[in-house]
Computed example of a mutant assay.
Amino acid sequence: MLELRNLGYRYPGSERAALQNINLQLHAGQCLGLLGSNGAGKTTLLSLLSNVLSPQQGELSWHGPRSLALVPQQLAFYAGLKVGENLKLFADLYQLRGTERRERLQLCIDCTGLSDKLQRRADSLSGGEQRRLNFAIGLLQPAQLYLFDEATVGVDAQSRQLLLAAVEQLTDTGKAVIYTSHYLEEVERVAQRILLLHEGQVRLDLDTTQLLGADHGLLLEWPDQPPAGLAAVLTRLELNAELLPRGLRIAALDGSQLAVISDFVASQSPLPTLMRFGRPSLEQLYLRLNGGQL
């Protein structure tokens, strides 16, 4: 659907390029999770895709008609209008008519939980409710590619689940999505592919199965140090462990090995302060790849 070749951009007066040599192919039905620290170039990339900025280097090619919708960081609605009035106004701007108009309006209201807010003025909503209205207006626009730029900031946990389900529904129906967020658990849920930007360059571009892997690992920590005898248990199980200041990490083990270690640990005193089994989280990997910087 979309291809970027050596894309670059530098803001006037800046010593460093905001983006340089960005190469990317995005396909229909795919959600790309766009990660990076503040100032890494995420918003600049979305601005180039949405034609707010023009590329100064490289090419941006659409295969088929250019059709995109943007949910920006900034609130983009009319504060003096009611919620329902805002949605109807944007439906007019998007030239929605007839059955499509009614269905899309109802879908966006349901996806964002705004059915009981339609008669309230937008400026009377809480911050999280305004975010939900912003989200609904972006969903309302018919498009093949949807861009979400920190779209759930300030939204409560229950409402966030509604919004994430709406993003998943987009990809299920063949739409492409680029989703940027500092809530890494959101990206881990909705994205099939991860792009990590660092100082305007792509540091990592992998699908989530490659990034997170299929192996299950174990992380253990104690108040002081691991109990004596644990090393012998690991040797008997033929497991290698990475030593940590107050514990250890085992990169991969199976259920029977976990059961032996758990039985041993439970019989010792003191018990561990942390015992976590499973795949590594995206947050753990992101912090390691990004040099520990948030």
Rank of each mutant, 00 (worst) to 15 (best):
M1V: 10
E3I: 10
N6D: 15
G8T: 02
Y9S: 03
L19H: 03
Q20A: 13
Q25I: 09
Q25C: 13
Q25H: 15
G33I: 05
L35E: 02
G36Q: 03
S37N: 15
G39C: 00
A40C: 05
G41T: 04
K42N: 01
T43W: 00
L45R: 02
L49I: 10
L53R: 07
L53Q: 06
E59D: 10
L68R: 00
L68I: 04
A69D: 01
A76E: 07
E85H: 03
N86Y: 00
K88L: 11
L89I: 10
D92G: 11
Y94K: 07
L96H: 07
L96D: 05
G98Y: 08
T99C: 11
R101A: 04
R101G: 05
R104V: 02
L107F: 13
L114A: 06
L114D: 02
D116C: 14
L118G: 05
R121S: 12
S124W: 10
S124V: 12
G128W: 01
R131Q: 12
R131I: 03
L140D: 03
L140C: 03
Q141F: 04
Y146E: 00
E150G: 03
D156I: 07
D156E: 06
A157C: 09
S159T: 09
Q161R: 14
L162C: 09
L162A: 08
A166H: 00
A166E: 01
A166G: 04
Q169H: 15
I178E: 02
Y179C: 00
T180L: 05
S181E: 04
Y183Q: 11
V187H: 02
V190L: 06
A191S: 11
L196C: 05
L196G: 04
L197D: 03
E199P: 03
G200R: 01
V202S: 07
R203M: 13
D205P: 02
D207K: 05
D207I: 08
T208K: 12
T208E: 06
T209K: 13
T209H: 13
A214N: 15
A214D: 15
H216Q: 13
H216E: 14
G217L: 03
G217K: 00
P223W: 07
G229F: 01
G229K: 01
V233E: 09
L234V: 04
T235W: 12
L237G: 07
L239E: 03
N240L: 14
A241S: 10
A241P: 04
E242H: 11
G247I: 09
G247S: 05
R249T: 10
A251F: 09
G255A: 11
G255W: 10
V260K: 14
S262N: 15
D263S: 14
Q268T: 13
S269D: 11
F277Y: 15
R279V: 10
S281E: 05
L282E: 04
Y286E: 02
N290C: 08
G292S: 06
Q293V: 13
Q293L: 15
L294H: 14
